[in-house]
């Protein structure tokens, strides 16, 4: 086996823009599959709509390209139907946090064993670059031509508050770390969230003086800071930084489908 066995190579070339961080994230995901030795046919890979949504076309497993914002709701049906299988969802910041925000918080609340990777490029890329729930304030987008006045979500805080039991953040500028943290999240039993900070130089960067991938990746690289480094800094020094690492891991809380199985046993036993 090699990680390329998880890729539908006959569907290449892919539809993403040159230099997009999504390729790095996709490779981190298939490398994690390979490292864990998961069988293709035991994985359900489900995506919503947007650039991230296209990934299910290229991943060589059971796969489903669904509707905008709802991949977690489909995944919940799949996982509850087959708790013995691996269910992985890849979603963008608009997909997971705007139109799909409700499904995100409730999947986290249930602690259902779905592995979610959020590709956070801070913009609606596929539709031409509109403001998203994670667009930095005062950034220009197609629909905030005078600058974005809205504050953005902190995905990590949101996920922890909603009840996710594994929450991490990584960046496409650190591909090996990204792969490792995704692998770790895949091993977690419960709802896991990995926020992968990515670049959209085409539809966000070019409106904000970050018009090529190198410039934008440098901009990301200047803003990220690993958690262990951040711990040694003063709050003032890390005020505008994006902290990377595993923020939350709760192995105690019971997973939803296991609780459901127990319920079925109790109900059937008491008949």
């Amino acid at each position: 086996m090699s990680y390329m066995d998880y890729v539908r190579t006959f569907k290449l070339p892919h539809s993403w823009c040159p230099g997009c961080g999504i390729g790095t994230i996709m490779q981190a995901i298939v490398r994690a599959f390979d490292a864990l030795g998961w069988k293709n046919e035991d994985i359900a890979f489900i995506t919503g709509i947007g650039c991230s949504g296209r990934m299910s076309t290229y991943i060589n497993t059971n796969s489903m390209h669904t509707t905008h914002g709802r991949p977690l709701a489909f995944a919940t049906g799949v996982k509850l139907a087959r708790p013995d299988k691996h269910v992985v969802v890849v979603s963008g910041d608009g997909d997971a946090l705007a139109i799909g925000g409700n499904h995100f918080i409730h999947a986290a609340r249930r602690n259902i064993d779905i592995k979610l990777v959020i590709i956070n490029n801070s913009v609606y890329g596929m539709t031409g670059g509109q403001v998203s729930p994670t667009t930095p304030q005062m950034f220009r987008t197609q629909t905030t031509p005078y600058g974005n006045i809205e504050p953005n979500f902190d995905v990590v805080k949101l996920a922890i508050a909603a009840g996710a039991t594994f929450v991490a953040r990584e960046s496409v500028t650190r591909p090996r770390n990204l792969e490792k943290v995704i692998e770790k999240s895949f091993l977690h039993k419960g709802f896991s969230v990995v926020e992968a900070i990515s670049n959209c130089h085409i539809n966000l960067g070019r409106r904000n003086k970050l018009k090529d991938q190198i410039t934008m990746l440098r901009w990301i690289n200047d803003r990220i800071i690993p958690m262990n480094v951040a711990k040694r800094k003063s709050p003032e020094e890390i005020k505008d930084k994006i902290i990377l690492g595993v923020f939350h891991e709760d192995k105690e809380r019971e997973e939803y489908t296991q609780l459901y199985e127990k319920l079925v046993e109790t109900v059937r036993g008491s008949k």
Partner: peptide, 11 residues
């Protein structure tokens, strides 16, 4: 799903 084929359902 999980029948043994890497089949793709597409919207």
């Amino acid at each position: 799903f999980f029948q043994g084929y890497n089949f793709h359902f597409e919207s």
